[in-house]
């Protein structure tokens, strides 16, 4: 028996919108502490890790650990039928090959049930080692989205360099080059507008902008984004989901031949 009631149903809608274009199918792993998902994109360049903790739900019941394979495109189609103010409940029964999404309007005058077929997905969890990162940049998520979008109109890859001076995003393409430098800025009215750079050692890495732009679909989930880099590891682009968990995107770097 599985029953999860999320008053802020729009959060789940936003989570799906942020990952559905990167990952086609994924196993949702439910346990008593919450649910999680880990999946690579089809070309094995990026990996999504999602965690939503049980504390964030108004009601959370999961009698035993269970894994449900879902097509994220189909799940997104169903969740789009929920209103932004709706309460969303996920229900499942042991051994069933379907999952039910229930949408309740805030005034309880409209209640909808959508039953979705589950699928068998072969997926192995990758071991993600704990890492000390050379540099961690926390910045407004909208600013990061703007930079990725702007640079993608010039080039295909972005070089992200962190030094004492700040964080630099660079690209080059047929029409020319672009460099955007952000300096640490903590003297802002609202903490979410700050750019905070924690640097143990300078680092400079190259990534495909196509993936970075895909990650920025998570921007509505959080006012801030954290970018963690070490030379010999995939970059981690993390959007925290208030009080509940996170969506993390890992992207393998491009290396010089």
């Amino acid at each position: 028996m599985l029953e999860l009631r999320l008053v802020q149903g729009s959060l789940l809608k936003k989570v799906l919108e942020s990952i559905k274009d990167l990952v086609n199918d994924a196993n949702f792993d439910f346990s008593s502490s919450g649910f999680s998902l880990q999946s690579m994109d089809s070309s094995h360049v990026a990996l999504v890790a999602l965690l939503l903790k049980s504390e964030g739900f108004e009601h959370y019941r999961c009698d035993r650990n269970t894994s449900m394979g879902m097509n994220l495109g189909n799940m997104s189609k169903m969740l789009k039928c929920a209103g932004n103010d709706d309460i969303i409940t996920i229900k499942g029964d042991d051994g069933s090959d379907t999952v039910t999404f229930m949408f309740e309007s805030p005034t309880q005058d409209k209640i909808a049930d959508f039953e979705m077929k589950l699928m068998d997905i072969d997926s192995e969890h990758l071991g993600i080692p704990e890492a000390e990162y050379h540099a961690i940049v926390k910045m407004p998520s909208a600013e990061f989205a703007r930079i990725c979008k702007d640079l993608a109109s010039i080039g295909d890859t972005v070089v992200i360099s962190v030094t004492k001076e700040g964080v630099k995003f660079s690209t080059r393409g047929d029409i020319g080059t672009a460099n955007i430098v952000l300096r640490q800025n903590t003297t802002v009215d609202k903490p979410e507008d700050a750019t905070v750079i924690e640097m143990n050692e300078p680092v400079s890495m190259t990534f495909a902008l196509r993936y970075m732009n895909s990650f920025t679909k998570a921007t509505p989930l959080s006012n801030t984004v954290t970018i963690s880099m070490s030379p010999d590891l995939p970059v981690v682009v993390e959007y925290k989901i208030a009080e509940m968990g996170y969506v993390r995107f890992y992207l393998a770097p491009k290396m010089e031949e």
Binding site: M40, E124, Y250, K254, M255
Partner: peptide, 14 residues
């Protein structure tokens, strides 16, 4: 030229 690395060259299958 730069080559795209795979996630699998960093994170191990169990």
């Amino acid at each position: 030229m730069s080559r795209q690395k795979s996630i699998l060259s960093f994170f191990q299958k169990p």
